[in-house]
Nucleic acid binder design. Structure first.
Lengths: 104, 104
DNA sequence: AGAATACATAAGTCTGTGCTTATGTATTGG
DNA sequence: CCAATACATAAGCACAGACTTATGTATTCT
């Protein structure tokens, strides 16, 4: 079964924005904050939630903590999605793109 | 962008259970309740949330309301997932299954 | 060593959400 | 037509969660 935390973590728009930023490349917490009107503790708390859900992992580097996307989280979502493949209409283009990318 | 409601709808375990039940086949609200220790209003409210997120659609049939999985909701998730395909490790079996099913 | 930096944690507040009970609205059956 | 059934909606409550301010803990720089 899918972890209860993963959808809860993604339910918050701020957290999705953070995740999206991390998808562009690993980044420390301060870099993530720049351009994102969010306090330092709030960012720290959001990162803790994302980490708890398995969407993100951290690596301490000196006094910085680098965060990066954890594929395990995405895999959990894919696995959940796969349970409902009977309902995927073939004509939806996004799904075809998905397929093509994974095939190569 | 992905609808803000879709992950919020799936963040609730009861709602995921309802969705999973519906994936087995369309069902009316009363049938959904059976075996699910949940009050009638609570079920109605959960269905309204799932419907608002595009995960489920309804069809009135006499005094019954039949609910069924709406592929549009799943497509939204797939589209969101596809943005992070750079992070999908090829060796994750679930993803390969996903791929195979969609290819046929 | 001491100040500054990067981040985490604690505690409190406020809003959102999932439940309840009560009632409303269609639709059907006797 | 009227009672029963299927479902939706309203209002109130209790708890979870996202923020704040304040403080703690490492690490680096001079």
């Amino acid at each position: 079964m899918i972890g209860n935390d993963i959808f809860k973590a993604l339910a918050d728009p701020t957290r999705r924005a953070i995740f999206e930023k991390l998808a562009a490349g690993q980044m420390n917490a301060s870099a993530l904050r720049s351009g994102m009107e969010i306090s330092q503790p709030a960012m720290s708390q959001h990162l803790a939630v994302l980490r708890g859900a398995g969407l993100v992992r951290e690596e301490r580097q000196g006094r910085y903590v680098n965060y990066e996307v954890d594929p395990a989280g995405l895999a959990q979502i894919a696995q959940w999605l796969s349970k409902y493949r009977a309902y995927w209409p073939q004509q939806i283009e996004a799904l075809k793109d998905l397929l093509r990318e994974m095939d190569t």
